[in-house]
């Protein structure tokens, strides 16, 4: 049963939804720029094409790390999505501490980019990887502090099932003041985790020429793109579970779920399109300054029961 969930829900369904979300992102970007944009199947075609291309390894690169790190990222994101789907399907069958497992595994895709970048023996890739590392250090603190709000609200439970059950009983966490604040903070952290424009210093196309992924080609690049597409579904999904899952177990719940998901993705894409790129020091200041402050305020409000 777990294996079936792992393959069908965790990998296939998430990948399909994620790739469609990538198309949605490209299409909205095109519409904002008064263009027509790519057809619906374009992300799928890209992945298939990359699987058919030659996979090269740069001379002097560390072979094992170079080829294993993309797979590492993909597997971790599959595990995360499996855990989340399981929590949604049966809220009683989640294990103790799965929230912490999810938080850990959500860091590994960034880690795989860092490892791959450093392993590829390219100066631009090294700069991209080191920027990615700083970005992880920057957003991880407010992200975890904001996730803590959901934990505190659901009587200090680190089971995702308990968080969902609390929200079914008492309404969504986003309905409270601390919920709104922490949702706001997590939203920007998700933007940084996805590597989208205000925080895309790691693969700044104009200065680093795709950054950490510069030496990747063929199958490895396809896996990286697939991981990124799946994160496009998994991270908003995680946000919905943490903050809005009171909405999705009522009548017409699936419709509400889809609407909330589309709203979050659209907002992410619009923010991506109307902002310039931040420097890495500005990004660090942004996350450690106002975002950490807001998340601390949210945590204190949650402790007070607001």
């Amino acid at each position: 049963m777990i294996l079936i969930n792992f393959i069908f829900l965790g990998f296939l369904l998430t990948a399909v939804i994620g790739l469609i979300a990538t198309w949605f992102d490209r299409k909205i970007t095109a519409r904002i720029q008064y263009r027509v944009g790519p057809p619906l199947l374009q992300p799928f075609i890209d992945i298939v094409k990359l699987f058919g291309k030659e996979t090269l390894m740069p001379e002097g690169a560390s072979k094992i790390v170079f080829f294993v790190s993309p797979v590492l990222g993909l597997i971790s994101i599959i595990i995360v999505s499996t855990i989340l789907w399981n929590a949604i399907i049966n809220t009683n069958k989640t294990f103790l501490g799965d929230l912490i497992v999810v938080l850990y595994f959500l860091t590994i895709p960034s880690l795989s980019i860092i490892l791959g970048g450093f392993a590829s023996k390219n100066p631009l890739a090294s700069i991209g990887a080191s920027r990615e590392m700083k970005l992880v250090i920057a957003y991880e603190l407010p992200f975890i502090l904001s996730v803590l709000v959901s934990v505190i609200k659901s009587n200090l439970s680190i089971r995702i099932g308990d968080i969902i059950k609390y929200q079914i009983a008492h309404g969504s966490i986003i309905g409270s003041w601390s919920g709104i604040l922490s949702f706001f903070v997590v939203f920007f952290c998700v933007q940084a985790k996805l590597g989208l424009v205000p925080f895309d210093v790691a693969e700044a196309e104009t200065e680093l020429a795709s950054g950490a992924l510069i030496e990747y080609s063929g199958v490895s690049l396809a896996i990286y793109r697939l991981t990124k597409a799946m994160m496009f579904f998994v991270l908003p999904f995680f946000m919905i579970i943490l903050f809005c899952s009171g909405q999705i177990f009522v009548s017409l719940g699936i419709l509400k779920f889809i609407l909330i998901y589309i709203a979050i993705v659209t907002l992410i894409v619009i923010i991506r399109n109307v902002n310039p790129r931040l420097r890495i020091d500005q990004a660090l200041r942004f996350f450690w300054g106002p975002m950490t402050f807001l998340s601390i305020v949210a945590t204190i409000l949650a402790m007070r029961g607001l």
Binding site: R35, V36, P39, E215, L221
Partner: peptide, 21 residues
């Protein structure tokens, strides 16, 4: 640019030669 928009046909500019066709 919006006038010609080759992304309709899936063409995008790649930053690195390793990604290019």
């Amino acid at each position: 640019t919006p006038r010609f928009d080759v992304e309709r046909f899936g063409m995008v500019l790649a930053g690195s030669i390793r990604h290019a066709d």
